[in-house]
Amino acid sequence: MKSVMCRLAFAAIIALTAQAASAQTLKTVKERGTLICGVSQGLPGFSNPDDKGNWTGLDVDLCRAIAAAIFNDAKKVKFTPLSAKDRFTALQSGEIDVLSRNSTWTSSRDSSLGLNFAAVSYYDGQGFMVRKSLKLNSALELTGASVCTQTGTTTELNLADFFRAHKMKYEVIAFATADETVKAYDGGRCDVFTSDVSQLYAEKLKLTNANDHAILPEVISKEPLGPVVRHGDDQWFDIVKWTHYAMINAEELGVSTKTLDEALKSAKPDVKRLVGTEGNYGEQLGLTKDWVVRIIKQVGNYGETFDRNVGPGSRLGIARGLNNLWNNGGIQYAPPIR
């Protein structure tokens, strides 16, 4: 209890001092020569080290894209792995320049922590995994089911809301950690395993017979995940936000690592604006004209990073779903570069 009080007190001090934090993140980053990016301590598909010790993942690629835009070198980024508890403190205290750590955008986080969510890089939501042998097609058929979940998370609250709203009976079996929850589900202690959909796909790989399990189509909560920056530096906020938008616009306009050379010769006005052969939109952000070219050449567009890290090109094999472009049935939509 005491430590909770201390934490709150510290958080208050930080929130106050964070307001005074320098409004010159871009300058600091350029002087330092590297971007310092806060990521998770290991979340499959979003940020995890590979066998060579290089960080990979969707969140990681966003950081690399920012570094590419600033330095023309996607390698000039250092990753600070952060726990869920310390992530916002680390950003507030200036330990990191940007937090790209599967953080859900909520009103309270946006308003009371002295932080800004720059964009939504991944639309996640809570879902259900069941055994195929139960022959269920919808979460609405889960009446009377026993549900494994992690205790003390919003997952547990969302679950209660969903079943109450549909007047269905259920039994919760909660565990302290994600690993325990998966083991319990795998061991048959419960019929259903609930968590964020991206995590369901990741945990599915750890089940004894992954093919015997299916993820139900219903998504019962909104978990928009995105990069976070400190209050008080609008230029930096814009750079992070537009790095993400640039990757989405590139996908929408068909500009990828493969088609970049053609795009540079393209006569289409919107492609010309994107790759900087027309206008000075990068300079307005404090970057260079060819900022999008740098991003696409070294990291790729949004579709490419999605496919490589969490989509069909990865072990997770998550479908695009909500994260498809707006003109493809999803809700990823970026304002135009012009």
Binding site: G42, D51, A202, R315
Partner: peptide, 16 residues
Amino acid sequence: LRAAFADPNWATPSML
């Protein structure tokens, strides 16, 4: 080790 657990290329039931 915990970070290694997050690698989807090695995710198996016996990994932990």
